[in-house]
């Protein structure tokens, strides 16, 4: 049977919104769409796919890539192998996709952000979105991870609700087990509440520059935030991170200085009312998402802004 298997992601009782992108790509592929989901009481719009298969596995068992391998074995046994297996491009989705590909010897393409139906190729980012490779897979069902925000517009409602099926869960492995969730430490600053964020990235160069951007934020009455490289280097605390692994922000103005715009960062700020980007690289992906852009030396822009604003 010809079908696309959508391995959905459910965490802490929430059907993650990025599943819509997997559903959208599934629809584009033009196959019967079968959505796999764990046991639990959460909402799914059942008109978006042809079949929903609920596995009688607890959420944490289902999210474990090694258990997923066993669950998929049962799916294949019941319906045959699919043409495509779609995971979310996320912490757990990517982990399970790679492991599944390895277990079954299937080709894998991660971070798929577009599909050209005529050519039968999937677009995958290289060098932080500076170029894309058009990929073809062969030798088995293609395992894909789907970039959040890329395909949800193609997830359309069908006339009828999906066929509902249930499946016994597989016994959980003991070589990897879930212990607990760890919440982020509380911080006195909540960047999601700020109306104006000044966000700094790798382009600031080194730690000594941070204080001067902090000063600029003070002058402009903005709150200082940062992209992943700045947080990784401990130049700013984790609570100030904008992006998928940090905070999603929607300020009135988002002023990005020295941020090239990795998609994980874009996903965390693209809904801001007004995005202004300053970067010395004219090809930086962030200029595609910004409303206003300045190509230039961010330190010079910083110093001049301070000078004019103080005057």
């Amino acid at each position: 049977m010809s079908y696309a298997l959508i391995v959905s992601e459910v965490r802490r009782g929430v059907f993650e919104e990025r599943n819509l992108d997997s559903i959208g790509l599934g629809a584009l592929l033009g196959k019967e769409t079968v959505l796999l989901a764990p046991d639990g009481a959460y909402e799914i719009n059942e008109k978006l796919v042809d079949t929903v298969v609920k596995v009688k596995s607890a959420e944490d068992v289902y999210l474990n890539p090694m258990n997923m391998g066993k669950i998929l074995e049962q799916v294949f046994g019941a319906r045959g192998k699919p043409d495509y297996i779609l995971f979310t491009q996320s912490s757990s989705g990517t982990e399970a996709a790679a492991y599944t590909a390895g277990l079954y010897g299937f080709p894998v393409i991660t971070d798929v952000s577009a599909y050209d139906k005529e050519a039968g190729v999937f677009l995958k980012s290289y060098y932080s979105d500076k170029v894309f490779g058009q990929f073809k897979a062969s030798g088995g069902p293609a395992v894909l991870t789907v970039r959040s925000g890329s395909f949800r517009e193609f997830a359309g409602e069908k006339a009828a609700a999906a066929k509902a099926e249930t499946m016994e869960g597989a016994p959980a492995v003991d070589s990897r087990t879930f212990v607990e969730y760890v919440e982020e430490e509380k911080s006195d600053i909540d960047i999601t509440k700020a109306e104006f964020l000044l966000s700094i990235g790798r382009g600031i160069g080194n730690q000594d520059e941070v204080a001067s951007y902090e000063e600029l934020a003070g002058v402009l009455r903005a709150v200082l935030s940062g992209s992943r490289p700045v947080i990784d280097k401990l130049w700013l605390p984790k609570a100030r991170q904008v992006g998928t692994s940090g905070k999603t922000v929607k300020p009135k103005v988002y002023l990005a200085m020295g941020i090239s715009g990795a998609f994980q960062h874009i996903a965390g700020m693209k809904d801001s009312d007004c995005i202004i980007a300053v970067n010395k690289d004219a090809e930086a992906p962030i200029f595609q998402y910004a409303h206003y852009g300045i190509i230039g030396d961010i330190h010079k822009v910083r110093d001049k802004l301070k000078e004019i604003a103080k005057a």
Partner: peptide, 20 residues
């Protein structure tokens, strides 16, 4: 190899920013 690059392309241009 199970996958191959058929072609390299530049990212699709979106609206883009108004440059100052």
């Amino acid at each position: 190899a199970k996958i191959e690059v058929v072609k390299w392309v530049y990212p699709a241009k979106k609206g883009g920013a108004t440059m100052l």
